[in-house]
Nucleic acid binder design. Sequence first.
RNA 1: GCCUCUAUAGCUCAGUCGGUAGAGCAGAGGACUGAAAAUCCUCGUGUCACUGGUUCGAUUCCGGUUGGAGGCA
Length: 314
Amino acid sequence: MDKIKTILISGPTASGKTSVSIELAKKLNGEIICIDSMQIYRNMDIGTAKVTQEEMQGISHYMIDELYPSQMSDVAWFKDTVKNYINQIHQKNKVPILVGGTGFYINAILYDTEFSEKNSNYEMRNEFREYAFLNGTDKLHDKLKEIDPVSAESIHPNNVKRVARALEYFYETGHTISSHNTTELNKRTSNNSPYNFKFFTLNMDRQILYNKINQRVDIMINAGLLNEAKWLFDQNFDENLTAMKAIGYREFFPYFKGEIDLDTAIEKVKQNTRNYAKRQLTWFKHQANPIFVEVDKFNFEMPLIVKEILKYIE
RNA sequence: GCCUCUAUAGCUCAGUCGGUAGAGCAGAGGACUGAAAAUCCUCGUGUCACUGGUUCGAUUCCGGUUGGAGGCA
């Protein structure tokens, strides 16, 4: 049986993924799956730049509003859910178009990262984090050195999250996470993806991108971002929830508490968004092998961009 | 007009008891495989405003000039 054909449109935030994907879907009889760690949450529309009903132009979208902010997402669940949607869309004889900026999730889907083994233990994670807090990050790192020197070598002691996960993985499965990672990385290079995919990353001059980001934050403010942020703030959720880390929300919490003024909070949103865009680009450049589409070279003209992408398809 | 303070990295400021300087922020680069919009790592040469003087040597001390802030009239 032939592999299912899919198209993936990625890129940093504010690069125009949404409109490109909708134009493509119209041209290719496609449906859209959003690969975005934050658009998955309900009640967080403006700040996550979620597609609006009008923008969709009748194209079906999936993986939006699947969870409540009080729920935790994770790669394994995300990948399985997307997989199902891809199959469903394919069975309708339509083209699944994946669009999003969460590189970690994208790779998990495209390169079929193995998560079947049950090995996630949040309690253990928290214990390790507590241990590092009480005894210092180096002490936690020493524990890792004992059971998995290879991982200890590549994970910085300050990166408690990773050190804790590596330890958790070992105690849950009896194997080192470094061996698991090696296996999964080999899958990526040996091209045994379950999909026949074309992977695009939209990009543009850095300064232009930053200007777009700044402008978009202002637009979000005018569209009522503050109300959304206030709502989330008022829920009094645990600050460790993924949804509480969303840029465009958490920066306003100190403002609601009266600790900073509004302009400072808005500047912080812009800055964090810029930094995030930078991290996304680093991921796409080094953790994947996409076709880069420099949209500013096409003057941001949608027909030209779509035409460029279509050149690589079929 | 007079007096006082001030002029150092894109920004906010340290500092050098005289031997050409360093933090935070911004910015840049990177890592990443069950929290990922998360988490973490690396990167700081700039006419030390200009101009004279003292000195072996001045960004540092002294004089003047110019810009800024405050006070008195």
